[in-house]
Design a binder for these strands. Structure first.
Lengths: 155, 155
DNA sequence: TTTATTTTGTTGACTAGGAAACAAAATAAT
DNA sequence: ATTATTTTGTTTCCTAGTCAACAAAATAAA
């Protein structure tokens, strides 16, 4: 296995591992809410005026899935929808107070995870860290280019 | 958003993006086989004597899922099972010639993806590359430690 | 050896999410 | 203004994967 391949593999493995180890505390602390629901809540809070399409894009899911997910979150009273006076088609979402509470718990959990992994970030120098960050960003925008080149679209 | 958080976010975004952009060519070239099936074939070929439990662990799926997945791959004649003379319980898998063909196509695709992303790796110096790789590995084994500490197990 | 515990794989009920067809609204074209 | 096209969200059907209960085999304990 060459280096590039190895990096991608390790990358994927790290990602899976992280999702998996975090899952337990998440499930415990956010009992009754799926990761997707929480993730959706996070996205709604962090971006102003999220509608179905935007959420689909940022969560890498289909509009159909988001449609169902938001409906579920509405029946749970965690989010509510609103529209703009000049547009009868697009539906936007915002958190209810209960939704914000979930958001807060989620943020706290992330703070814990960050604490747990602090040693990793303490061990490396600033420039090493910048190197990694820069690499990820560069790779990401390269893929954006390729996506554009291939004419792929989120639908 | 602090730096650690940002790295994780970019990280996740890059990962999703990569899965997504690769999906199209995959689906085209490996029509009739799901990503999971292909991933499973890959794992069987790359590790000797994979059984259900091992596959579950390496693919981050439940044993139940692997049980069904391997069954499907068997009816498709892409893999076959075997047992060891001294153990009537554990079931191991290996690829059939048709399975190996799928494996080969998958490998070729990865070669293409590597080619597509070559520029990224060409742009960075060896030591920058090593830095990234080292970081990922370090993080991964840190999580291994934490997993052990928390007494989590794959079941 | 006999019994209890653990490991391994399987099955059935259930759920999340994708694909595609659809309706309604918005925008573009004429 | 009218018509055609595109965008946005919804719904139905279907599949992949989880969970939990289970049986059989292997291992540990007695």
């Amino acid at each position: 296995m060459n280096k590039e391949e190895q990096l991608i593999t390790n990358f994927r493995d790290l990602f899976n591992k992280m999702v998996w180890i975090n899952k337990y505390k998440m499930e415990d602390r956010l009992k009754g809410h799926t990761p997707s629901e929480v993730h959706c809540i996070e996205s709604i809070e962090k971006n102003v005026d999220s509608n179905v399409r935007e959420l689909a894009k940022s969560l890498y899911m289909t509009r159909g899935a988001i449609s169902k997910l938001t409906k579920k979150l509405m029946t749970k009273k965690l989010i509510e929808s609103y529209q703009k006076p000049d547009n009868k088609k697009e539906i936007y979402f915002k958190l209810t107070p209960q939704g914000k509470e979930i958001f807060r718990i989620h943020e706290d959990l992330h703070k814990e995870f960050r604490e747990r992994d602090k040693v990793i970030f303490e061990q490396i120098t600033d420039e090493q860290f910048e190197g990694v960050l820069h690499f990820v960003e560069k790779y990401s925008s390269h893929l954006d280019e390729e996506i554009k080149k291939q004419g792929l679209t989120i639908n």
